[in-house]
């Protein structure tokens, strides 16, 4: 056995060995090589750079803000934001807050909250992955999923970040998202973060959406390989935060099945408000 092996080594030509050695050397070189990025721009000398640096005048970090801006001179509300609020000692009817179901100030909820503080403390001191998931989170997720009749639910700690990070979690570069022109700011940020192609349709205009979907279908016909990789999404709101209008969900669901488009619904305003049992537009 050993002799045969030796024999094989003997038979191989010198050229063969040279080639092998060269290949090994090349691999080693490539592995250990420090990658240097070549700069193709015109080279300036350090002195020229110094001159340019001395000339450069940066703009101020922020522009001046007019001091009479209402945001800078807020009026504070004393106490809880219930049906009536007290501003500077005077009582007003509260039409500002989105406390639709009037849960603010509900004794039962506050008692539970206090009990929770005395059991778990206030902060979780860690992200979900690292000892920040508390058992109450899991319970709430389970209940939410049951309430909506979904398989699972996930909690975020900040309403604004929820949709803004859910969109880029699914929609990646190369995907396409059909979005209503009237969506709220958080959704717009999510779209921006996702790097997917965004197709805007007129607010609540189903014909416009259909037109865009058909355009996409034509594109798909032309390039079926790409079509098999392009995930499609629609993003709408249950009740639009900006206009208060309700989305035509039935029509959207039709489109969903017809064009195989997944749908995101932001129900920030409609959850607990619409539907017989408060399950929003669903």
């Amino acid at each position: 056995m050993f002799a045969t092996l030796l024999g094989i080594f003997g038979e191989a030509s010198t050229l063969h060995y040279a080639l092998e050695t060269f290949l090994i050397a090349a691999v080693t070189f490539l592995y250990f090589r420090r990658r240097e990025v070549k700069d193709s721009r015109v080279k300036l000398t350090e002195k020229q750079k110094d001159e340019l640096i001395a000339e450069w005048k940066p703009e101020p970090l922020v522009p001046d803000t007019p001091q009479d801006h209402p945001v800078l001179n807020p009026r504070f509300i004393d106490g809880k934001m219930t049906k009536y609020v007290k501003i500077e000692g005077k009582e007003y009817l509260n039409m500002v807050t989105s406390n639709f179901l009037g849960f603010v100030g509900e004794q039962r909820i506050e008692d539970v909250a206090k009990k929770t503080i005395f059991k778990y403390g206030v902060g979780s001191c860690g992200p979900r992955g690292f000892y920040g998931t508390v058992d109450v989170h899991l319970d709430l997720e389970k209940e939410l999923a049951q309430f909506f009749g979904c398989e699972e639910a996930v909690l975020y700690s900040y309403g604004f970040a929820t949709i803004a990070s859910a969109i880029p979690a699914y929609a990646k570069r190369g995907d396409v998202i059909f979005v209503d022109k009237g969506v709220n700011f958080a959704i717009q940020k999510g779209l921006q973060a996702s790097r997917a192609r965004v197709e805007w349709f007129e607010h609540n205009d189903m014909e416009d959406l259909e037109r865009l979907l058909e355009l996409q279908a034509e594109k798909d016909k032309r390039d079926s390989v790409k079509a098999g990789k392009t995930r499609r999404f629609m993003v709408v709101e249950g009740i639009y935060a900006n206009s208060g209008e309700i989305c035509p969900l039935q029509k959207l669901m039709e489109f969903k099945w017809q064009h195989k488009v997944r749908i995101f619904i932001d129900e920030s305003y409609s959850f607990g408000v619409l539907g017989k049992t408060g399950r929003g537009k669903l």
């Binding site: 945001v71 807020p74 009026r75 504070f76 509300i77 106490g79 809880k80 934001m81 219930t82 609020v85 501003i87 500002v96 807050t97 989105s98 406390n99 603010v104 100030g105 909820i109 506050e110 909250a113 206090k114 503080i117 005395f118 403390g121 206030v122």
Partner: peptide, 25 residues
């Protein structure tokens, strides 16, 4: 924890509004 809990009595759990719409407590 005591302070946080007492605060619930005074100002409730949430303001249900954005910062600019009278939400800054």
């Amino acid at each position: 924890a005591d302070a946080a809990s007492t605060k619930i009595n005074d100002e409730g759990l949430a303001t249900c509004s954005t910062v600019h719409e009278n939400g800054r407590s």
